[in-house]
């Protein structure tokens, strides 16, 4: 069975019904959203199903959308069926005040550090992770630097002493 976007959508709808949302195929990649609480169920289904077999976790990262109230943080999984060579993208959204997401480490060993990295930069709390601590940043850091409330310096700011920067 070829894993066309229609086929994938049918299979997922069959299994998860209305929980499957925002289905789209952009730039050749089938992409969908599921409720955060279902992430493991969906990953397990995609992993186990004899037709689907999405058993390679290519990438795991987060995105911050400060304007979406109640669903500010997105966790994005890129999965790959190596046999049939199909890639898909799965997203879940969580509230920034309670960013709890079940860990995928039981399914994919590769999720371990990627989840730590995601925690490090976005503060996603991966429930059940064996060793959820900062990985790239210093341990004493008390904020999550890739969130949008920490903008990089505005390049047009004028409150600096220009002489110090060769602009005087």
């Amino acid at each position: 069975m070829e894993l066309t976007p229609e086929y994938l959508q049918n299979r997922l709808t069959e299994k998860f019904g209305d929980d499957l949302r925002s289905v789209e195929t952009t730039y050749g990649m089938f992409s969908f959203e599921v409720p955060a609480a279902l992430n493991l169920k969906v990953l397990q289904f995609l992993y186990d199903d004899p037709e689907l077999q999405f058993r390679f976790l290519t990438d795991l990262c987060a995105v911050h959308y400060p304007d979406q109230k109640g669903r500010e943080l997105a966790v994005v999984y890129h999965l790959h069926n190596l046999r049939k060579n199909v890639r898909i993208r799965m997203k879940i959204f969580v509230d920034i005040l309670q960013p709890d997401v079940y860990t995928a480490t039981a399914l994919f060993s590769s999720a371990n550090w990627q989840e730590r990295e995601t925690y490090d930069f976005y503060g996603i709390n991966f429930v059940g992770h064996p060793n959820l601590k900062r990985i790239l940043n210093v341990e004493e850091m008390d904020y999550f630097p890739l969130r949008k409330e920490y903008p990089l310096e505005d390049q047009t700011r004028i409150d600096k002493d220009d002489e110090m920067f060769g602009r005087g």
Partner: peptide, 8 residues
């Protein structure tokens, strides 16, 4: 191979 794939 199996472990390697699981480890990404």
């Amino acid at each position: 191979a199996e472990r390697a794939l699981n480890y990404g």
